[in-house]
Amino acid sequence: MALLTAIIVLATLAAMTSGRVPAVLALITALVAAGLIGIATPAQLFAGVSNGGVITIAAMLVIAKGVLATGVVSRVTFRLLAGVKTPVQTLVRLIPPVGLISSLINTTPIVAMLIPATKELQQRSGIPARSVLLPIAHATTLAGSMTLIGTSSNLIIAGMAESDGVKLSMFSFVPIAAPVAVIG
């Protein structure tokens, strides 16, 4: 069974990284294969989907897609980044508001919403999107780790802790995460 599991995991990773198959299709195929082979029961295979954190992340991504469709992110970032000439100037203008927002909204959709804006910035100003997105992703993770809903990992940890009887509040992570975010 361990060998079959390893083969399924490697095949799924290969399918996802190739880009030929949508990631969702590759993952669903892997789950079905694991279920048919008998690696795990359907309840075990879909246990992660019942985690409140996973459901919240999925909902946040849907909200992010809706916000992107409105064009508000492009308009705000266009005004915020007007006149920037270097990646450092871009980061100085983006990190404070993005950090604040990421402590209140899950970080994954924030970074997803900034992808089109940074591509537009690259076309307009010649500032490479990759030189902005990676530092922004790190900044959102650091600032987002301060709250329960700020990062995916906090949501998942809270879901696992709750099953053991540990209740985490919205700001349970602040005493440790705030100094780390400021230093980072």
Rank of each mutant, 00 (worst) to 15 (best):
S152E: 04
L61W: 05
V98R: 00
L94G: 00
R79Y: 06
G159E: 06
V72F: 04
A58P: 04
A33P: 10
A34E: 10
M146K: 10
A59F: 12
S131C: 10
I149H: 02
S163W: 14
P96K: 03
V111T: 07
A34N: 12
L148M: 08
L121S: 03
R79K: 11
V111I: 09
A40N: 14
V111E: 04
L114A: 03
Q44T: 12
V62T: 05
P97L: 03
V88H: 09
G48Y: 13
L114E: 02
L134G: 11
L133E: 03
P22T: 08
L94I: 03
V88D: 04
L114C: 00
R130C: 15
T107C: 13
S152W: 05
Q89R: 03
S102G: 04
A139V: 05
V111C: 06
A30W: 07
I37H: 08
V88G: 06
Q122D: 08
M113L: 07
A33F: 08
M160L: 15
S153A: 15
S153D: 13
A143G: 06
A64G: 14
V132Y: 01
A143L: 02
E120W: 07
A15I: 06
I28L: 15
V21W: 05
L134F: 15
M60D: 01
L148S: 07
A30Y: 06
A64S: 11
L155W: 05
S102V: 02
G126W: 08
R20E: 10
F46M: 13
A40Q: 14
G144L: 00
V67Q: 02
S145R: 01
A82M: 01
P116D: 00
A129L: 01
G126S: 10
R75L: 07
R75F: 09
S102A: 04
H138F: 15
G126K: 07
A59G: 10
G53R: 05
A15K: 09
L36T: 12
V32F: 11
L121H: 00
I136N: 05
T56E: 12
L104G: 04
G83K: 05
R130H: 15
M113Y: 05
T151H: 07
A59P: 07
I39L: 12
L45K: 08
M160C: 13
I149Y: 07
G48R: 12
L121A: 04
L27Y: 12
R93F: 00
S145Y: 04
I95D: 00
L134Y: 11
I39G: 09
T118A: 01
A64W: 03
I157P: 09
A129M: 01
P87G: 04
V92E: 09
A82T: 06
G48E: 12
I105P: 04
P22E: 11
T107S: 14
I39C: 08
A43N: 14
A33T: 13
S153C: 10
V21N: 01
I157G: 06
T90G: 00
A23L: 11
G71T: 01
I28F: 15
Q123T: 12
A59M: 13
P128Q: 15
A23H: 12
P42T: 04
S18T: 12
V132T: 02
V62M: 05
Q123Y: 09
